[in-house]
């Protein structure tokens, strides 16, 4: 795994900063150019990339900085997604979600949906994390995968919100002063969140928590020896990571105006891992680069062959075997 150094040498940092700026502007330029060219479909692709990147930024907190290989992040993505879907569908129909002990109704206001989605995902991450962190290494991978499947099968067999068929929400939720159904304006919301999450992630990486987290990845015994409990640090990062991924899930529901158990499937967990790794694990902008590449590949290869995932698999295999460090490693140098 690429070691993620926070205090990188000034020379390299400037190179990585240039790459980061280019990626930010590149992702911003795609929808603007697409609207100018009259291709609104590309705006949707860019929005998808921004949302997946946001989920990846969340995963990167646990995976890149904490070294926690979570194969169950789809659970948090889906929890956020279902929180948004359930609230919005109740908000539209006017039926209350629960009537006892007090009546709680739905809402179609994003500002109300987001905190609920984040809280749901964070709570899920707290429970799953507390149980999974009892183990390490390969056990941790298998257990997060199993908990992800548990959430998946729960939503498949729970008939109230569409079960296997998923839950359509028909229109996007509202945001004050923004027409969320306009592709470019919805992109702006997703992009804004991505930038905010990147800033947050950067602040965390440089904070006391971030430093302790990296220490926990490198050597738990030493961290314990200086008086910090590795498990608490890792659990804190896991919850933050789940919360960010849950927020991305809520946006994803609004993008598609639909939420289904597919968001919770193990393939989603795998894809989130893949885009973080392809981009560069433990690198601030790794998930952004990875998500942009993933969406571009899906679209370009998907246009050439129905079996595009075969080529995605082959490429991923080559990257893992021979080109470690991902895109950020190639563009900005190793260990930047």
């Amino acid at each position: 795994m690429t070691a993620a150094a926070v205090q990188a040498p000034a020379r390299r940092w400037s190179r990585e900063a240039r790459v980061n700026t280019a990626l930010s502007l590149g992702l911003l330029a795609v929808p603007l150019l697409a609207m100018a060219a009259g291709e609104p479909f590309w705006v949707t692709l860019a929005t998808r990339a921004a949302i997946l990147a946001l989920a990846g930024v969340g995963l990167n907190l646990a995976l890149g900085y904490g070294g926690l290989v979570s194969f169950g992040h789809a659970a948090f993505f889906g929890l956020g997604g279902y929180a948004a879907g359930v609230l919005a569908s109740h908000g539209m129909s006017g039926r209350p979600i629960v009537t006892w002990p007090l009546e709680i109704g739905g809402t179609t206001q994003m500002l109300a949906i987001w905190p609920v989605a984040v809280a749901a995902a964070a709570l899920g991450a707290l429970v799953i994390g507390a149980l999974s962190l009892r183990t390490t290494g390969v056990f941790f991978i298998m257990i997060t995968l199993a908990f992800g499947q548990m959430a998946f099968y729960f939503m498949v067999s729970w008939p109230a919100y569409g079960g296997e068929d998923g839950l359509p929400t028909y229109v996007r939720s509202r945001f004050p002063g923004v027409n969320t159904m306009a592709p470019l304006q919805f992109f702006a919301i997703a992009y804004g969140w991505l930038m905010l999450a990147l800033w947050l992630s950067w602040r965390i990486a440089g904070s006391r928590l971030g430093l302790a987290l990296q220490a926990a990845r490198q050597n738990r015994q030493r961290l314990a020896a200086v008086g910090i409990r590795p498990k608490s640090v890792l659990l804190g990062a896991f919850v933050l990571s789940g919360a960010l991924t849950g927020l991305a899930g809520a946006l994803y529901t609004d993008l598609n105006r639909f939420v289904s158990p597919a968001m919770l499937s193990w393939q989603t967990s795998g894809e989130l891992l893949v885009l973080v790794i392809l981009g560069g694990v433990g690198r601030l902008f790794g998930p952004v680069a990875g998500a942009m590449l993933f969406i571009a590949l899906e679209h370009l290869l998907g246009g050439i062959s129905d079996y595009w995932q075969f080529f995605l698999g082959a490429m991923l295999l080559m990257v893992v075997l021979f080109a470690r460090g991902g895109i950020m490693g190639a563009l900005a140098g190793r260990d930047g």
Binding site: I277, L317, L321
Partner: peptide, 11 residues
């Protein structure tokens, strides 16, 4: 293990 997971996921 991360590399193993990814490579076998690719498979």
């Amino acid at each position: 293990h991360l590399d193993q997971v990814l490579a076998t996921f690719a498979l």
